[in-house]
Amino acid sequence: MQEITPIHFQTTRVLPEYDVFIHTSDGTRIPAHTSILASVSPVLENILDQPRKHRSSERIIQIHGVPSTAATAFVGFLYSSRCSEDEMDKYGIHLLALSHVYNVPQLKQICIKGLSQRLTVENVVDVLQLARLCDAPDLRLRCMKLLTNHFNTVQRTEGWKFLIKHDPWLELDILQFMDESETRKEKLRRHKEEFGLYVELSEAMECLEHICTEGCIDVGPYNVEVGREKKPCKRFSTCQGLQLLIRHFATCKKRVKGGCLRCKRMWQLFRLHSYVCQQNDSCNVPLCRQFQLRMEQEKRKDDPKWKLLAKKVVSAKVMFSLSLPKRKRDEEVRVTIESCGIRHFGYNEYCNNQCVSC
């Protein structure tokens, strides 16, 4: 004899007598109302619209493959549009399947969110299989990420062992996702490294203009006094290194023959500045105007590469500036340093005596 399971529906509506019964796998009969079921689920509406063999026969809907308690929770949601945390803990997987089969989008979204929060290495394979069958891409992605991050542990679960025996296509899909994930991580790592390099170059360009226009602790234009009283710029670590490089460039004897790597690096910074500079004739950086004139007169094969590098440096500067909080963008870094060595770099006199070659 079938058992009738009464349901305490959480609704304020006055309901008529039950006119449909839901039968579950274990013989449980759940009473319901056709008007409620049809208004929430188009699938149930189609089932209820089918003609009965006999007018006197009961309307019956078969819901098999899930526990009767899960079916009861499903019918309860159709009336109240609510699903308790306890029901989600116990029947989340079953409710997701029922919401997909009977096309109840609101319940489906609740189940996807609830199952995403309850993913573990023990149930992730089962949830992934269900997410694929129930067309739940967000839940599938969460499962894939958890599998990728804890693959060694998941491999030891019964769910994984069952999967590799009975669903090789899903196993292949998982392995491909993991491979693509590693590729994406590697691309992201390289992108971060390149972005960091462009940010460093943009800082070097700022420091170069600062040194050649205002002067800093150790190096400055011939008409600007520098020394201990001169405050360091906000990017002192870059600025100090660049000052040392400029001082070396001014006195090095190997650069004439191109035998000094430090001088070559300084020369490249001068050239990069000429591609970034927008000041034209008013720029105080050495060799800037000479490089620009040469660019206008000669079309060198490596010019597109330098222009692209300059574009990326400017872009990185803007992006880095926007990524900082306003208070950090405005604050100045205060450091205390000791000056040493040569105080001035008469770069104007030096540039007038040099020819531009790179």
Rank of each mutant, 00 (worst) to 15 (best):
I63D: 03
F77V: 03
S68C: 13
A73M: 05
L44W: 08
T28N: 14
D86G: 03
G27R: 12
E17K: 11
S81N: 13
F74N: 00
E85W: 02
F77K: 02
V66G: 02
L48V: 11
I60W: 03
T34A: 15
S57E: 15
S81K: 07
R59E: 12
I36T: 06
Y79Q: 02
T28Y: 04
P31H: 09
F21N: 12
E58Q: 12
I22C: 06
L37W: 08
L78H: 04
I61L: 12
P31V: 09
S56H: 13
I61S: 08
L48F: 11
A71P: 00
S25P: 05
D19V: 09
Y18K: 05
D19Y: 01
G76E: 07
E45T: 13
K53D: 11
F21P: 04
V20N: 02
T24E: 02
R52P: 09
V43L: 01
H23Q: 14
F21W: 06
T72W: 00
E45Q: 14
V43E: 07
H64W: 10
Q50R: 08
D49G: 14
Q50P: 04
E85D: 15
D26E: 15
R59Q: 12
V43I: 14
E85K: 11
H23K: 10
T28P: 07
F21R: 11
A32M: 04
S68Q: 08
V66S: 11
H33V: 03
T34N: 05
S39K: 05
S35W: 07
E58P: 12
E17A: 15
Y79K: 02
A70P: 05
S41R: 03
I61N: 10
R29L: 15
S81L: 13
V66C: 10
E45L: 08
E85Y: 09
S39Y: 07
Y79N: 06
T34P: 02
Y79A: 07
H54F: 14
S25D: 15
H64Q: 12
S56P: 12
G65P: 09
Q50M: 15
S39M: 11
Y79L: 01
E45I: 03
T72G: 02
A32W: 01
E58M: 10
I63W: 02
N46W: 07
K53Q: 06
I63K: 02
L78I: 04
A71I: 01
P51N: 09
D49E: 11
I61Y: 09
R29H: 13
P42G: 03
I22K: 01
S84H: 08
P42N: 06
N46C: 14
R59T: 10
S80H: 04
A32Y: 00
S35G: 06
D49F: 05
A32C: 03
P42A: 05
Q62L: 13
E17P: 03
V75M: 00
S41Y: 00
L37T: 12
A32E: 06
S81C: 13
S57A: 14
L78Y: 00
A73H: 02
H54Q: 15
H54E: 15
N46R: 15
V20G: 08
T28C: 07
R29T: 11
S68G: 13
A71V: 04
S39G: 09
H33G: 02
T69R: 05
L48W: 07
S68V: 00
D19N: 11
R59F: 10
G27L: 11
L44K: 04
R52V: 10
T72N: 03
E17G: 08
P51E: 12
D86Y: 12
